[in-house]
Amino acid sequence: MEALECDLLRYIGTLSRCIHSIMDEKFKAYGFQRGQFVFFTRICETPGLTLTDLTQQCAVDKATTTKAVDKLAAAGYVEKRRDSRDGRAWNVYPAEKGLAIYDAFIAEENRQAAACLAGLSDEDKAAALRLAAVMSRNAADEWNRMKR
């Protein structure tokens, strides 16, 4: 049997699952379902984002994005509008109700980041960010190759 050569992905997976579970629990009070906060924050950060771009940013399939956005729109947190340049495409925007809670979401995300980085020097934090960015780009490239 082949042995795992590096535990890095195991640690990253644990980190991701823990953070998502915490965020999902925190945002239940707003009626958010599992993983919807990821879509919501991206929409608030980039108003007018297309569903295609949102799908790419979140590294999920189109159906998952559509389902999440439709639920957020039905709850009044975001709005979908036809793209003015391409009538087949949709753009998504935060609704007033969404903007009213966005700061609470970002505050929690910042709190989670601080908890994860506790005990690291500023240099270690910078190195972690730089390395995570490279790993994220590499993983996105691999995901895009798989999707073709």
Rank of each mutant, 00 (worst) to 15 (best):
M1P: 14
M1K: 12
A3F: 08
E5L: 06
C6V: 06
D7C: 09
L8T: 15
L8A: 15
L9V: 11
R10Q: 13
Y11T: 02
I12M: 02
I12V: 15
G13P: 09
G13Q: 00
G13M: 02
G13A: 03
T14S: 01
T14I: 13
L15F: 12
L15V: 11
S16F: 14
R17N: 14
R17G: 09
C18G: 14
C18L: 13
C18I: 15
I19F: 02
I19L: 03
H20A: 08
S21M: 06
S21C: 08
M23D: 02
D24Y: 00
E25H: 11
E25L: 10
K26G: 06
F27P: 10
F27E: 05
F27V: 08
K28L: 10
A29P: 04
Y30V: 07
F32S: 03
Q33N: 09
Q36K: 00
F37T: 07
F37P: 07
V38M: 09
F39G: 04
R42C: 11
I43S: 10
E45C: 10
T46R: 07
P47C: 03
L49G: 03
L51K: 04
L51D: 02
L51W: 07
T52D: 09
D53N: 10
A59M: 08
V60F: 00
V60P: 06
K62V: 02
K62E: 06
T66M: 04
K67G: 03
A68Q: 07
A68T: 04
A68Y: 06
V69H: 03
D70K: 12
D70Q: 04
K71R: 09
K71Q: 07
L72E: 04
L72Q: 00
A73M: 11
A74R: 14
A74T: 07
G76R: 02
V78K: 04
V78F: 05
V78H: 01
K80A: 01
R82F: 12
S84H: 14
R85L: 15
R85V: 09
D86N: 14
D86W: 05
D86T: 05
R88N: 12
R88I: 01
A89R: 08
W90R: 13
V92G: 03
V92M: 03
Y93K: 02
P94R: 01
A95D: 02
K97D: 11
G98E: 04
G98R: 01
A100D: 05
D103G: 05
D103H: 11
A104G: 08
A104P: 05
A104Q: 15
F105I: 12
I106T: 14
E108M: 03
E109P: 05
N110H: 13
N110T: 12
N110P: 10
C116G: 11
L117Q: 13
L117E: 15
L117W: 06
G119S: 04
L120R: 09
L120I: 05
S121Q: 01
E123W: 02
A126M: 01
A128E: 00
A128T: 10
R130Y: 08
L131V: 15
A133T: 15
A133L: 09
A133C: 08
M135S: 10
N138C: 04
N138M: 10
N138S: 13
A140G: 03
A140V: 12
D141V: 10
D141E: 12
E142S: 10
W143V: 06
W143I: 11
M146N: 06
R148I: 05
R148N: 12
